[in-house]
Design a protein around this nucleic acid. Structure first.
Lengths: 187, 187
DNA sequence: GCCATGAACTTGACGCATCAATCTTATGGG
DNA sequence: CCCATAAGATTGATGCGTCAAGTTCATGGC
């Protein structure tokens, strides 16, 4: 990060016979700083509100919300991972901790012996139902109360374009497995 | 996260006698999803590019860039933390690892016995000079090549407004110490 | 000169994410 | 039927970030 100040740019330009002459101008630098400032600030702020007001971490909330989208609150682990856009490993670690807290339960899938069915427990359902209003209220106050509808539309477009650029840029993540990198599932 | 699907909202609205009736409408939900998608995608993408192409992690790059902004490459630890908008603890942990790699060095400050002067080593300077062009090139390709100048301006405004809302929202972070939460130092 | 207060920094414990194995179960070709 | 391959999931190691103590040093009142 830190697209570094002019000094660094000057030094690099002087010392390295690089083929990358396209440094950021002042306006671009300002945009990048603002974007990074938001990046560094928004996620922690949302997580903190959640943890403080409901005892759920951000990732935990995400998992519970995903489960709740299903009528019966049951999902195969891999399916949930795809819906969240996460790697299996990440989800597995998190599920272990959540199972320990009683928020979800896991059982071998009857259909495919390899899979795990993860299910919302009553405690898990109660936790997210209690957390949701505060979470949504916070997001509204932070994002939507701060922007006019036109600004919100512009923001949407910008996010979509940058995200598209990232994905086009060969950022083929998706854990270590070669999954199709679904992404954009919750829409 | 996961401002959860309509089902969750409906359930919460039914079951909880809440005073938070302001759920997100469909358009707002879409904006929030796009924003979160960006949040989850941009930071890791930048970090990955950096780590892959130069062996520096995102935070390491930030620290080196901050040091490089100073002529002599020396900074007090607390000053650097303020410039980065980070907590002392976070920086301390990172510096320990970076010292182990030879990227920076630490010495007791002669002025204030409590402080540590952190200094860029030759290896550290070389590392960031080598990393900078690729980093900037990547940021440009992801953010600026994807947006028109007008869209960039809109994005800037949106970022500033949301960040301001976060800070206004009593997000008084700044580690455990009561620092003035400088923020916006690198401009 | 002495001590309370507080600032600067570090440390340890813990949750979280990634990466590289591993283990188990399907599945398809011989 | 048997084995190679692949998919689903877990595990362990490591880096990172946060929170809560803790340590060291400076400073101001007495």
């Amino acid at each position: 990060m830190e697209t570094h100040a002019v000094r660094t740019q000057a030094e690099a330009r002087d010392l390295v016979p690089t083929s990358e002459p396209r440094w950021l101008n002042e306006r671009e630098h300002e945009v990048w700083l603002a974007l990074r400032h938001l990046l560094w600030g928004l996620q922690p702020a949302v997580d903190r509100q959640l943890l403080h007001d409901s005892g759920l971490s951000g990732p935990e909330y995400s998992v519970l919300a995903t489960l709740t989208e299903n009528p019966d609150g049951v999902l195969r682990s891999g399916t949930a991972a795809r819906m969240l856009g996460w790697g299996r490993s990440r989800l597995s670690h998190l599920l272990r901790r959540m199972e320990g807290k009683g928020l979800i339960s896991r059982a071998c899938s009857p259909e495919d012996g390899r899979g795990q069915d993860i299910a919302l427990t009553p405690a898990g359902r109660e936790a997210i139902i209690e957390a949701a209003p505060g979470h949504v209220g916070f997001v509204r106050s932070i994002v939507f109360d701060a922007l006019t509808p036109e600004q919100q539309d512009s923001l949407l477009v910008a996010c979509q374009r940058i995200s598209a650029a990232i994905e086009a840029s060969g950022a083929i993540e998706c854990d270590a497995d070669g999954g199709p990198c679904d992404a954009e599932p919750t829409a």
